[in-house]
Design a protein around this nucleic acid. Structure first.
Lengths: 137, 137
DNA sequence: CTTGAAGCTATAGCGGCTATAGATGTTACA
DNA sequence: TGTAACATCTATAGCCGCTATAGCTTCAAG
């Protein structure tokens, strides 16, 4: 039986976050010791690791809740899991594309300014005047 | 004199968000009409547009507060503005790099699964077992 | 048997909004 | 001038995904 601190160390999820996940219904309320402290099994550590991993990949708690539900019914079709992963992948790709546009824009703004004082500074100027932008954002 | 709704339409910042920015000290409290409604000047619209633009570029309210402060002192050296922009650029590049790793990982996970039901599904399996990952995250 | 770390619950705060409720103001048209 | 429709006002709560704090209890080592 693992204490919550042990779980935290092994999964890399902070103690208050574990309690938060329990509250949010991502993990079941575990057994308790005589003195009301949480006691976890190996299986519960596995699920926490699963959650940690999915969070690292940027999945929302909502999506993870769904995946956890799926993983508990191994005979269900896994199309749903694919839908979740694919949707997430699309979202990530969009974020990358958007960030790249921002990067380009900021690089341009940054490189363009050789002023000494704010009055002539392109950074401030370009921010103030959207018309000077190259891309849409 | 512009009403808050007019400001919203022209800047693309939602009405409650404008009030929020005022509360957060990003814009000054404007004049009021006889009936206590906000009335803005052209100059205040410009500042709001500035903020909108900076937000679009992903800058934090904190960073924007700083830039607004700078823009009000046009004789100040603009090195500080560069610091803010450069730091932000670095953050964006890091986020891009991280997202690309996630994209690769998720693509791999997704492509690897040709199962019919959850029991054999790689998506779930890979999430459950970090050891199956290729990259760190 | 004592001490100090770890655990407990409940609550508040973070950023950056967004939504709601219920009251009041403004404006266009009859 | 009246009225109806819409805009605005304040105050407050909620969103996500935690994180921090306070004040208490329990556990494990020496």
């Amino acid at each position: 039986m693992l204490s919550i601190g042990e779980m935290s160390r092994r999964s890399g999820v902070k103690v208050p976050t574990i309690r938060y996940y329990e509250q949010m219904g991502l993990i079941d309320a575990p057994e308790r010791s005589a003195g009301n402290q949480r006691r976890y099994t190996r299986k519960e550590l596995d699920r926490l690791t699963f959650i940690r991993h999915a969070r690292d990949l940027g999945l929302s708690l909502e999506a993870i809740r769904e995946l956890v539900r799926l993983s508990e019914h191994p005979d269900m079709p896994c199309a749903e899991a694919h839908v979740i992963a694919t949707a997430h992948l699309a979202a990530i790709r969009e974020r990358i594309a958007r960030l790249k546009r921002l990067e380009k824009e900021l690089t341009r703004i940054e490189a363009a300014c050789h002023a000494d004082h704010v009055g002539d500074c392109n950074i401030i100027q370009v921010l103030a005047d959207h018309a000077l932008c190259e891309s849409e954002h």
